[in-house]
């Protein structure tokens, strides 16, 4: 009787374990439009932070959900993905927002010169600060 109980106990543990492992393995990606914003800022301020000290800016922004407000200077679609460039006071740098597949469908409603708020995940700074999986907020 006792042995039976132990075996059942182990079996249940095993099944739960496999289930948890499977869930973890298939953990979904962060859904940008469903999670809270970590930092809300302007295109100017973000680029300024990166040009001033990249290491500090990296620890502040990388992999965070960023809401950025700025003026659109360029809209383009490369390989079916929308890319929006936000203007800054800097001559070379800007904030490049790569849109999600859903947001790309709405790209035709946007115009250059318009002020926009986008929300995306910051992956770092090359010539420009880069946001991926961006969604259009307004």
């Amino acid at each position: 009787m006792k042995i039976k109980k132990i075996i059942i106990g182990i079996l249940i543990l095993g099944i739960v374990g496999v289930f948890v492992a499977y869930k973890m393995y298939n953990k979904p990606h962060v859904k940008v439009d469903e999670v809270a914003t970590d930092i809300a800022s302007t295109a100017n301020k973000i680029l300024e932070d990166f040009t001033a000290d990249e290491t500090i800016a990296n620890s502040k922004y990388l992999e965070k959900i960023i809401e950025v407000k700025g003026e659109i200077s360029e809209i383009k679609i490369v390989k079916e993905k929308g890319i929006i460039t936000l203007k800054t006071n800097d001559d070379f740098g800007s904030v490049l927002c790569h849109l999600s597949a859903e947001a790309t469908k709405e790209i035709s409603t946007l115009q250059t010169g318009q002020t926009i708020t986008l929300k995306g995940i910051c992956t770092g700074y090359l010539m420009d600060v880069i946001l991926v999986k961006s969604e259009i907020i307004n």
Partner: peptide, 25 residues
């Protein structure tokens, strides 16, 4: 190339890639 810009099919793979293998921080 920004290491964090590599997007994987599974979130867990991306996490392991960044945290354990290429140490992108």
């Amino acid at each position: 190339i920004l290491m964090k810009s590599f997007l994987f099919k599974k979130a867990l793979m991306q996490e392991h890639f960044n945290e354990n293998y290429v140490e992108s921080d």
